[in-house]
């Protein structure tokens, strides 16, 4: 009897891990990878893997911020627009304004902080839903990017330097070619895992998303935490935009269009609850890998280009249904 009771937690923990959303997402990811690999041998070729790994961090970095924000019960639709605006502003300052690249990057950073702070302050102090606030911000930011460039992409950027190497340098491992952005993604992921699961701040973030009033009643500065998370998400979107612009040596005012939904899809497919309170960075990493693999894999297996989104949408829907069913099961059991 005593032995049985001692056994309980381990067994319980194992089964709860198996039933956790991250785990089911991981299983699906593995299945997807296997299907694509069998359908097309090129899927796991060094070139294709390198390709996927080049794109992964750009959306993945934004998804990390979005996971924390969603866990606190808010979300940000302006990330795609910020992804486009930040590099456009930085490169305009350098190319037309003759500003030093370091100073221009600092200006870009301040711009992202300002956008995030405005989002956060309006949501928390005035009490308008983040959907409406950040949707409006999306239009403002995208409009600004189009207006200051007159709609044209900026001429290519071909001055290598410290910052380019820092954000978009590349290196070879055997026949794989990786970008430094992968290190950024890994580093930021580890930091996000630490914060959400092990730090005091993570406890606050989950509590705010789970029951804001309860958190406030315990002295948790809910509004301040949310404002900082909006700022973080905005800054990460700008960082991802810079990485992308340096990698392809160009900045376009329409870059990142639609990224907000793709990023939110990554996060919820990974198992983070859209309603707040339950967030998982590991799940988001799996979600980011999954969406990347799907986009890449369906091209390889020959789905016609215009039909991509049908598949992407269906797979996301299937994932969400699976999470919902698991959730129901867990609640009943």
């Amino acid at each position: 009897m005593i032995a049985a009771e001692d056994e309980m937690p381990v067994g319980k923990r194992r089964s709860s891990l198996m039933r956790s959303p991250q785990f089911s997402s991981l299983v699906i990811l593995v299945v997807l990878l296997a299907v694509f690999a069998i359908a097309d041998a090129n899927f796991l070729s060094p070139l294709n893997i390198s390709n996927m790994m080049a794109f992964l961090p750009e959306l993945g970095i934004i998804a990390l911020g979005m996971t924390l924000l969603l866990t606190a019960g808010e979300f940000d639709l302006s990330v795609g627009a910020v992804f486009g605006l930040a590099p456009v502003v930085v490169m305009l300052l350098v190319q037309n304004g003759g500003v030093d690249i370091g100073v221009a990057l600092l200006a870009g950073l301040l711009l992202c902080i300002a956008i995030g702070a405005i989002n956060g302050l309006i949501v928390t102090k005035i009490g308008i839903s983040s959907f409406l606030v950040t949707l409006s911000m999306l239009l403002v930011v995208r409009g600004a990017a189009l207006y200051i460039t007159q709609g044209f992409p900026l001429k290519s950027w071909d001055q290598p330097g410290f910052f380019v190497t820092l954000l978009a340098g590349s290196f070879n491992v055997g026949s794989f070619r990786f970008y430094t952005s992968l290190w950024w993604f890994i580093g930021l992921s580890l930091l996000a895992i630490y914060v959400l699961r092990y730090a005091k701040l993570g406890n606050w973030i989950s509590a705010i998303g789970s029951n804001r009033n309860a958190a406030v009643a315990r002295g948790v500065p809910a509004d301040a935490v949310k404002v900082w998370l909006f700022i973080l998400t905005s800054v990460l979107a700008g960082l991802a935009g810079m990485i992308s612009a340096f990698r392809i040596s160009a900045a376009s005012p329409v870059a990142g269009t639609g990224y907000e939904l793709e990023v939110i899809a990554m996060v919820v497919v990974g198992g983070t609850a859209l309603t707040g309170g339950r967030g998982t960075i590991l799940g988001t990493i799996v979600g980011a890998l999954m969406l990347r693999a799907i986009r890449n894999g369906i091209v390889l297996i020959g789905v016609p280009g215009l039909a991509y989104n049908i598949f992407v949408g269906l797979i996301i829907l299937a994932m969400l249904i699976l999470h919902a069913l698991l959730q129901k099961n867990a609640a009943r059991g």
């Binding site: 630490y194 914060v195 092990y198 730090a199 005091k200 701040l201 406890n203 606050w204 989950s206 509590a207 998303g209 789970s210 029951n211 309860a214 958190a215 315990r218 002295g219 948790v220 609850a273 309170g277 339950r278």
Partner: peptide, 28 residues
């Protein structure tokens, strides 16, 4: 907060931490 464990709820806002100087980033 329903999504947090009993222990985390009991200490919400007054979490015992190590490395206190890390402020809100201090590990529980």
């Amino acid at each position: 907060a329903p999504d947090l464990s009993i222990a985390r709820n009991l200490f919400l806002g007054r979490e015992p931490v190590k490395l206190k100087w890390l402020g809100v980033f201090a590990p529980l």
